[in-house]
Design a protein around this nucleic acid. Structure first.
Lengths: 259, 259
DNA sequence: ACTTCTGTTCTATAATGTCAAACAGCGTTT
DNA sequence: AAACGCTGTTTGACATTATAGAACAGAAGT
């Protein structure tokens, strides 16, 4: 869990700061706009953008002169998880779960104190949760986050709490460190976790961890839906199928319950 | 089509050079290894890696000390195409095509003189073409590349030929500029393209371009398979369905044949 | 026609990234 | 068991290199 921010190469750091200001809401930004937002001079930003453009990490809208993210990033991003068989191996299992319970299923991995969505299978309902592969979410208020966190060392858990905090996202978010530790302890014992509207009111899910061949928890899956459909009874019904699916995926990537 | 490589910020350029040396074959590389490959001093590489690690673009294998690509790149990469509805909108149409003809279908876009695979739907056969979302391919020897190139200006076509060349990938690759122009002219007239083992012996495909609301060709789809199954007759059979599917996707993103 | 934005170019300066050498830790070899 | 050769890492001095400010060019708005 990286914490120091010394000895960072300024121009490279700034280049990534630039890439990071682009998001769904602001897909296209001008030189001046970026400069203001980052508190840099526009000619500095321009030079960085030129380099990023040379690499294809940003591209310029020829009519407006503004910049947007480029496909080189897509290429690099996909290279990260290719050969990383988890994603491809898991997909059929996720789809099977969707088919049986008609709610959206996600696969996430842990990265630097957060979870990253690496695959999803969407349910058929018109009312569905919004989510996007590649997005990040906090660990303390998601089913998948808690499922993964529960199986890390106490020290790791405390590092996450300390560096990321326990920001409240809804009235149900666990914001007390002691409470979180208690909850994680239960999850560790039961092998599954709930998200009871902890990140967003109206959204509930059931999640379970995925283990690799060293019995290390490396990922998690969840099935999520609106509280209207995810009744207490339905949540209970989902525990076994979610755990079973997570178990099948674990086995598929080499996990053996004996070792 | 970017050609100059002046005024590039050295450290940023080097940072991306580092990211770019990682690939499927070499997922983990050491500091010294990278330094040798790029002809840089290892402490320079180390400093850049530290910055990349700070950003989560690389991460270190704690046991071997080697580095690999990090999930931040996956996050940025997905951000490039999110909101870019083409991908999500096209998927059901691609799946429909796969279901009917049982061969792998791809969706690509043009980027800097190459095509980038942004979505695929795989056929059921055990013998299937290897492909990976995020990968790039040349335009002159792929069905999708030619389908897109055909609808660009003569000047654009010549720029691609000049900057990327007409490298032969198989005995069937078109390596003569005049021949390519002729072929593109036919594709422009007919509205579809073939790849007749031009990138790889044994691989054939049928492709068609996708238009946006300004009638501009922005993408292409293809259905590909081994020559054994992709007989001349089958290729002919596929022309109409592929064109129709491309047309449906085009309409879905706002294309209107009248305008 | 004037102002006020934009993205871009240029240049002097000093801050910054770079390189070389030294360090520390691990395995293998002698 | 000591010396070697290999890692990744730290340090510090130097000059390369990124930076910021001003000036430019073009578009859009007034």
């Amino acid at each position: 869990m990286l914490e120091n921010n010394d000895n960072i190469i300024q121009s490279v750091d700034r280049a990534f700061k630039i890439l990071d200001v682009f998001n769904l809401k602001e897909k296209e930004l001008g030189v001046t706009e970026i400069a203001n937002r980052l508190g840099l001079h526009k000619s500095t930003v321009f030079g960085l953008l030129r380099t990023l453009e040379y690499w294809g990490c940003v591209e310029q809208n020829q009519t407006t002169g503004k910049y947007r993210l480029g496909l080189k990033l897509f290429e690099l991003g996909n290279r990260v998880i290719e050969g990383f068989d988890l994603r491809g191996l898991a997909l059929p299992f996720l789809q099977d779960l969707v088919e049986r319970y008609r709610e959206t299923v996600h696969l996430v991995v842990h990265d630097r104190g957060e979870v990253v969505y690496i695959e999803k299978a969407e349910g058929p309902s018109t009312i569905r949760m919004y989510s996007q592969v590649g997005h990040r979410a906090p660990m303390h208020c998601t089913g998948v986050g808690k499922a993964i966190l529960a199986f890390r060392s106490k020290q790791d858990i405390d590092t996450v709490i300390r560096t990321k905090g326990l920001q409240p996202f809804s009235p149900n978010t666990i914001t007390d460190s002691r409470r979180l530790h208690e909850e994680l302890s239960i999850i560790r014992r039961e092998g599954y976790s709930f998200d009871n509207e902890e990140i967003e009111i109206g959204l509930r899910c059931v999640a379970a961890p995925i283990m690799d061949n060293n019995s290390k928890v490396i990922a998690a899956i969840s099935i999520a839906g609106p509280s209207m459909r995810m009744t207490d009874e339905q949540m209970q019904n989902l525990i076994v199928p979610v755990k079973e699916t997570a178990f099948k995926i674990s086995q598929r990537i080499g996990y053996s319950p004996l070792s």
